[in-house]
Structures are given as structure tokens and as C-alpha cells.
Amino acid sequence: MAQMTGAAITGLGAYRPSRLITNEEIAGEAGVTPEWIEERTGIRSRYRSGPEESVTMMAAEAGGKALAMANVDPADVDLVILASATKKDRIPGGAPEVASRIGITTTGAFDLNAACAGFAYSIGLAANEIRVGSARNVLVVGAEQLSRFIDPEDPATYVIFGDGAGAAVVSPSEVDGISPTVWGSDGSRADILGTKWDANGREFAKMDGPLVYRWSTKNVPRVARKVCAFAGIELSDIDWFVPHQANLRIVDQLAEILQIPDEKVAKDIIDTGNTSAASVPLALSRLHESGRTSPGDRVMLLGFGAGLAYAGQIIRMP
């Protein structure tokens, strides 16, 4: 058996599409007002991809940036994991194409669909591969094109979802920078968030907003406390809280329940919208780009959503 080693995030990258859509632009299409959108969701703008911006293209752009920050040559990447639920073609998976676009050849590559929890699931898997010596470096990307699944006649989904990609490189480390992952699911509630087919054969995202809010605020704090227990720390020990950017009301309520100061909470939701599996890495990358973090800062990553699936861990900032 390979010798166990530590694992840590060594690079981050993000890709936001070129089209920034404000509430003023989208409100009329959804039959609501800009004030209605911000009051209910906290969102002021979101990014929507253009014809040339596919899930794999966005993922490759974010992944390339993460590798550059980590100073890792593509030839030294042994595994690529693409967390996504919205790739246009179901077969083949997108991870091999992402690897090829970046110049990573003959690597292991697979897709993972845990919806909004996908990135946190993938980080846990990547860290384990590093620890047992199955990979020298793992590229993890969360990428979504939710604009393909939104219905203007359903304001609850039309105004909240956006597109984008965020990535992280997981590498060996003398000091373990990724705690054991807490993950789980509640399939009995799968019907409150997912996609449905209409009479014309189009697939749209459908969500019971109030039920999602109640489930999240009731169950996610328990998961957060378990994440800290697995990491051997207290909630007060974390420097930053990066939950899935589902809705600003949910993010704020979770922080209040967990007694995490507002200045420690990522709120990328405000101008990026809900990007499902891309939301945690996008928020984490922006936090790093802001210059507010320091190497070694403890960050709680917490993904939750459709499935209902959830996962989280404590990571150290690169």
C-alpha cells in the first residue's frame, strides 16, 4: 500500500461568463420588479454564458488558472474531476474534454453529479487520492450552465440561477490542509429541487423555495458542527465560512445560527447568483482574490442542495 501523506489546496481559479445580467435587465422577462428579486434572494446580478461558453470550456478556463496559481504542470496532473449537473450532452462525460483542453493527457477523468454539493464531494475524493498516493495532483472543477434550464414563467428559478466555473488543485502536503469530509443525503426530499419536463419536451429547473429554505436552515447547521468535530476544531476557530451560495437569506440565516460574524462569510451570491456546483469554488476564489485571506486560514466549505445531498470540510487557504 502507498505511504499516506497530507493533502492541501495549492491553487484556485475562476471563470465568469462575459454577460453580466442585472436585476433591471431580467425583471421584466420574469414579470417581477428588481426590488422583488433583491428582497427575496439578495441577488443584484448574475452571469449568463454565451453560445461559445460551454460547461467544458468554462471548466477548462478555471482549471487552467488554478494550475497556474499552483505552479503545477499539466503533465503532473493524474486526475481531473468535473462536478456538474448541467453539461448539455449526458454522454460522454465532460472531464476528459476539460483535461484535453488544458493539455492534460492520459489522465484519469470523471464527472460527479451531486448538484450544489458537487465541489465539496469532489474535494473530499481528491484529498483521499492524494493521501493514498494514487495521484500526484488532482484538478477539481465545479462548472454549471444553469441558464439552459430556467423558465421565465417561473421567477423563483429564472432570477436566481447563473453560470460559471471554479477550480482547485489538490496536491501533497507535509501538513494536511483538508479535513475529513462530512457528507450525506436525504433522498426522501428529492422532489423539492430538481428538473421537470414540460409538455413541449423542455427540461426546466423547479424548486420549492420555502421548503428548501426550511430544510437548509434546519439541517445544514448540524452538518457544519459535524464538519468542525471531524476537523478537531470549534466553530469559533474558522477564519472564513464559504457555504453554497443558494440565496442570501439562507447564507445569512446559517451564519446567524452558527454565530459566525458577518465579516467572515462569503457572499458571492449577491453579484454571481446561484451557480450550483460552481458556487463554492467561485466564492472561494473571489475571497482569495480580494486579498482578505492569508495562507493557512481555516475555511469551512459547505455544499448542499438537490438530491438532497450535502458535504463539507475544513480547508487551509493556499
Rank of each mutant, 00 (worst) to 15 (best):
V223P: 09
F241L: 08
K226N: 15
W215H: 13
H288N: 11
V299I: 15
R225T: 13
R214Y: 01
D268N: 11
E263N: 15
Q245H: 06
E289C: 00
N247R: 05
R286T: 06
I260E: 10
L302I: 12
K267G: 05
I257F: 08
R222W: 03
Q253W: 05
N219R: 10
L258N: 10
Q253N: 14
G194C: 11
S294I: 06
E234T: 14
I192T: 09
R214C: 01
V265P: 03
T195Y: 04
D191Q: 13
A231R: 11
M207R: 03
K226G: 06
Q253K: 15
D297G: 01
D208V: 09
L193P: 03
E256W: 11
I257S: 10
E263C: 12
K267F: 04
G273I: 04
V280Y: 00
L211T: 14
H288E: 03
G209T: 12
E234W: 07
S279L: 08
W240D: 00
P243K: 08
L248E: 13
Q245G: 00
S279K: 06
R292I: 12
E203H: 07
L258M: 14
E234Q: 14
D271S: 12
W240G: 00
R222M: 13
W197G: 02
I270T: 13
P221Y: 01
G273L: 08
G296I: 04
I192Q: 07
A205Y: 09
D271R: 11
P243E: 07
V251D: 07
D186P: 08
A266M: 05
F241Y: 10
A190C: 06
A229M: 11
V223H: 13
M207T: 07
T293Y: 02
I233A: 03
A255W: 00
D268P: 03
L258I: 12
A255N: 04
A229Q: 15
A246L: 07
T293S: 14
M300P: 02
G296E: 05
L235D: 12
D191F: 13
H288R: 09
P295R: 07
R292E: 14
G232R: 11
L235I: 15
F204N: 11
A278L: 08
G303Y: 02
T293F: 04
L248N: 10
W215G: 03
D262C: 11
K206T: 14
A278W: 06
N247S: 08
T195M: 11
Y213G: 00
D252K: 13
N247V: 06
V220L: 14
